[in-house]
């Protein structure tokens, strides 16, 4: 039995295909300006490369900001899906907090013993502390997002005091003019994202006692090794990251779809 989870994010569409609840395939494509088309096309693509048709799929659950734009069986918010996805990806980590930094928003989720969401906080009204902030800063500094993951870890971040994207841009112009090292600035930019994230985690109950059991770091920004290091420095605990973490939302959606089909089959049987 196949289920699909589609996470239509602001930057990328992530689709995961499960076969009997086990990973079968996953793809990531850019969302572009049309979440409806890119979402549907991504689902078609994953079906094609697995020689399947829509009729083979027992249930499709969509999530992410574009969840209402595609046809599916159920729509569930990315908060719930990320929690479920993190449970699978970090099964052995004993994760109690999920920090997700995506293209458009960032969120901190706290989980109870059963991996249910017990509290969450979203930053979604402003670019500060999100992937969008990093994107803007990359343009400013004429570098690419991946460069934010290849910085030396032996130089001190140069503090950026402005949280606001617009003000941070002018602050950086000033700092560049003063001759501040570009890499120290890039680390400073990452550290400002880390500081926002730290604040959010603490507000949903992160503290060193409970946190000893781990924080999972997901979303596109989790691919930055430097950002993860800066966060670890602030939080005082190692972060759990995974190559798979960008799939957390889609995987959680596919898992929810799988559980639902399972419970219906059992109910019917």
């Amino acid at each position: 039995m196949y289920t699909i989870g589609a996470d239509i994010g602001s930057v990328a569409v992530k689709v995961v295909l499960l076969e009997d609840g086990e990973w079968r395939d996953g793809i990531i494509v850019p969302t572009g300006w049309n979440p409806k088309d890119s979402g549907s096309e991504a689902i078609s693509a994953i079906l094609n490369q697995n020689d399947l048709t829509r009729a083979h799929i027992a249930r499709v659950v969509s999530t992410g900001y574009g969840r209402n734009s595609i046809e599916c069986d159920e729509r569930i918010t990315e908060i719930t899906c990320h929690a479920k996805g993190a449970k699978i990806i970090f099964e052995r980590g004993g994760v109690r907090f999920v920090l997700d930094i995506g293209g458009q928003d960032s969120k901190a989720i706290s989980l109870d013993e059963k991996w249910n969401v017990s509290d969450f906080l979203m930053n979604d009204k402003c670019a500060a502390g999100t992937g969008r902030f990093l994107q803007n800063m990359a343009v400013m500094l004429e570098c690419e997002l991946k460069d934010f993951s290849a910085l030396p870890n032996d130089i001190e971040p140069h503090a950026i005091s402005s949280m606001c994207t617009v003000f941070a841009e002018s602050e950086i112009v000033g700092l560049l003019a003063q001759g501040v090292d570009k890499q120290a600035l890039m680390l400073g930019i990452l550290d400002s994202v880390a500081s926002r994230a730290e604040g959010m985690l603490r507000r949903v109950g992160f503290n060193s006692g409970r946190s000893a059991r781990g924080v999972a770091f997901t979303g596109g920004a989790s691919r930055s090794i430097n950002l993860a290091e800066l966060l670890e420095r602030r939080l005082g605990v190692p972060l759990l990251t995974s190559e798979m973490s960008q799939y957390a939302g889609a995987l959680g959606a596919a898992e929810i779809a799988f559980r639902e089909v399972l419970s219906r089959t059992r109910g019917a049987g």
Partner: peptide, 16 residues
């Protein structure tokens, strides 16, 4: 302008 974000928050809150 934040109607969509509110939908996500309220949706997640109720799913909780």
């Amino acid at each position: 302008g934040d109607a969509e974000q509110l939908a996500t928050r309220m949706g997640a809150f109720i799913e909780m």
